[in-house]
Structure formats: structure tokens, C-alpha cells
């Protein structure tokens, strides 16, 4: 366990060094600040997605569900779209990015808890119905967003696009700082409830049996997930398969059910994957493609391989 963490920490540092220094020819004062920002964004997003996924998988008792598969990213996009659409371009533009982020996150928090209540309900619905409902809810949200894109005024649309689909290489610095603060708080929260999450793995009845306030713990966990998804989506837009990939790699590496270990290792794996992926994208693939597509591709293949291997047992 200690060796795994050490190795991953070294790998993260190595990948970071690679990203920061690869191909900088002389213009350090120009390249370094920009690359540092990219690095920070990658690490923040990676950590947010990793923690959100591990927590979410425990709550839903599934190793193949992620907030993103269940439509949380699409929900964030929809919330942002609704806000810009209803306030109009001028107001949205006048709003500081920070206020917009806070508003988005607030609405997202409420909406995701509602979604979770509606879909998971009292827990009597089977897991698989829940999954399907989540996937379809995700499509519903992105369809409504797509619908609103068409009917909204073009100026508002531009504001929204700039707001939603920033990439790892062009990021608002204030938002980055806020993202870092919110992330730190949420991650600390996740580690603080790590032992309760361990118990949650017993399922609802088992957890109540040993005296866990199941409802409250689940709601708290889902609130954390909503905040973390908001952070990562606000910074770089939806990243579909990253969480799935890193959470499952982390379980493999730690070989334990303890959340203290899995949360930490998943964060490190995500950081390595994103930073290394971005470095490769910049230098080997010469920016030909987006990190999101790359991750979908690799993550999708890994997911299917896992699914088939798992069904063999």
C-alpha cells in the first residue's frame, strides 16, 4: 500500500515535470505560467472526478457507475444553460465568473439531490433500473440543453459556450483558484467520512444494522459528489470515462475496500493519467484531438475489458 502510494506520487511528479518542461525552448517566462495553470487544472479535475466517482460507486454499490454515466455532467451543463438562457447574455456576461460558478453549483446541488431522490427513491427499485433511468436522464438533460442552444439568443449562446467548454489549456485563473479551494474542502469532507463510507458498502440494511444514519450519510455523500462534479465540469466540461477508469484502477492497486486508501490512490491515478495524457497529446499527437476523446477511447476499451473479465468470475 505504502509502495503503491509512493510509486504513484513519483509518477505524478514525473508526469508533471514532463508536462512543464517538454519542448520549452528558451521562453520559460512565457511557457511556464501557462503550463502551471494547465497542470493545476488537470490535477484539480482529476482529483474531483476520482473522489466523486469512488464515493458515488460506494453509494450505488456498483463498480461500473459513475456520476458522469448517470447524467450528472449533463445536469450541470443543463443548469448552466438554463441560467444563461433565463438571465440573458447581458446579465450573464456582467456576472463575475465566480458568481456564475456559485450560482451554478448551488442550483446543481439542489437539482442533483432531487434527481438522486427521484431515481434512487426509497431504494426499492433495482440497481439496474436505477442505472438505466440515470443514463436516460442524462440524455434528457443534454437534449434539453441542445434544444435551448437552438432557441436561445446567439449572444447568450456564445457566453455559454465560453463558460462551459473551456479546455485544459485556456482556463480562467480566478475559477481555478476557487476550484482549488472548493475541491480541497470537498476532498477533506470525503476523507472525513471515509469510515462511514466503509460501512455504507454493507448496503442499506447492513449499514443501518450497525447503526449508520443511512439516509443522512447517503445525502451527504451525494452532495459531495454534486459539488465535485460542478468543480470539474465548470473547469473543463464533461469528461466521461475518466472516473470509471481511475476508480477501478485504484481498487485493483489497493486491493482493499477501505475508502481512506481508495480515495487517495484514485486521486493519484487520475493525476497521472490526465497529466501524462495531456503531455502526450501536446507533443506526440501534436494537439490532434481532445483529451476528452482520448480518455473516452482508452477508458471505453478498459471498461469493456473489465466488464467481460468480471463476468468470468
Amino acid at each position: 500500500m505504502r509502495r503503491v502510494v509512493l510509486a504513484l506520487t513519483l509518477a505524478t511528479l514525473g508526469a508533471a515535470a514532463l508536462l512543464l518542461t517538454w519542448g520549452v525552448d528558451g521562453h520559460w517566462d512565457f511557457a511556464l505560467p501557462r503550463r502551471l495553470e494547465t497542470l493545476a487544472a488537470l490535477v484539480i479535475v482529476g482529483a474531483a472526478v476520482a473522489v466523486a466517482t469512488v464515493v458515488f460507486q460506494t453509494v450505488t454499490a456498483s463498480r461500473i457507475l459513475t456520476p458522469s454515466i448517470m447524467g450528472f455532467d449533463s445536469l450541470y451543463v443543463l443548469v448552466a444553460t438554463l441560467i444563461v438562457w433565463s438571465t440573458g447574455a447581458a446579465t450573464a456576461l456582467a456576472m463575475p465568473p465566480l458568481a456564475l460558478f456559485a450560482l451554478n453549483t448551488g442550483v446543481m446541488l439542489g437539482a442533483s439531490l432531487l434527481l438522486f431522490r427521484a431515481v434512487i427513491g426509497d431504494g426499492t427499485r433495482g440497481l439496474y433500473t436505477t442505472v438505466l433511468a440515470g443514463v436516460i436522464a442524462g440524455t434528457l438533460f443534454s437534449s434539453i440543453s441542445g434544444f435551448l442552444f437552438r432557441v436561445m439568443d446567439p449572444n447568450a449562446f456564445d457566453v455559454l459556450m465560453a463558460d462551459l467548454f473551456a479546455s485544459f489549456t485556456s482556463i480562467d485563473t480566478t475559477l481555478l483558484a476557487v476550484g482549488a479551494v472548493v475541491l480541497t474542502a470537498a476532498v477533506a469532507g470525503a476523507f472525513a467520512m471515509a469510515r462511514r463510507l466503509d460501512v455504507l458498502a454493507l448496503g442499506r440494511d447492513g449499514a443501518i444494522g450497525v447503526g449508520l444514519d443511512h439516509r443522512r450519510t447517503v445525502m451527504l455523500a451525494m452532495a459531495l459528489v454534486a459539488v465535485l462534479v460542478s468543480v470539474s465540469t465548470a473547469l473543463v466540461g464533461p469528461v466521461t470515462f475518466l472516473g470509471l477508469l481511475v476508480a477501478n484502477l485504484a481498487y485493483r492497486l489497493t486491493g482493499t475496500h477501505r475508502h481512506g486508501a481508495n480515495l487517495l490512490v484514485a486521486m493519484l491515478v487520475a493525476a497521472v493519467a490526465l497529466v501524462l495524457g495531456q503531455a502526450l497529446l501536446q507533443h506526440v499527437l501534436a494537439f490532434n484531438g481532445t483529451l476528452g476523446s482520448l480518455i473516452s477511447l482508452v477508458g471505453g476499451v478498459v471498461f469493456i475489458a473489465m466488464l467481460i473479465k468480471e463476468s468470468r468470475r
Binding site: I64, I69, Y128, T129, V131, L132, V135, T240, F241, N288, G289, T290, S293, L294, S296, L297, G300, V301, F303, I304, L307, S311
Partner: peptide, 25 residues
């Protein structure tokens, strides 16, 4: 029952990502 379409959705995601990467280029 549900694993089957989930697998299909992910497979579709792989095709789409491939399309996106080629299209981007």
C-alpha cells in the same frame, strides 16, 4: 438485462470518440 445496453452505450462512446478524433484532425 441492463449490462447489455450499458456495454452498447460504452461501445458507441468508443466509436464516437474515434469519430471525434478523426473529425478533429
Amino acid at each position: 438485462m441492463i449490462m447489455v445496453p450499458l456495454l452498447g452505450l460504452v461501445l458507441g462512446g468508443i466509436f464516437r470518440a474515434t469519430t471525434e478524433m478523426i473529425a478533429y484532425r
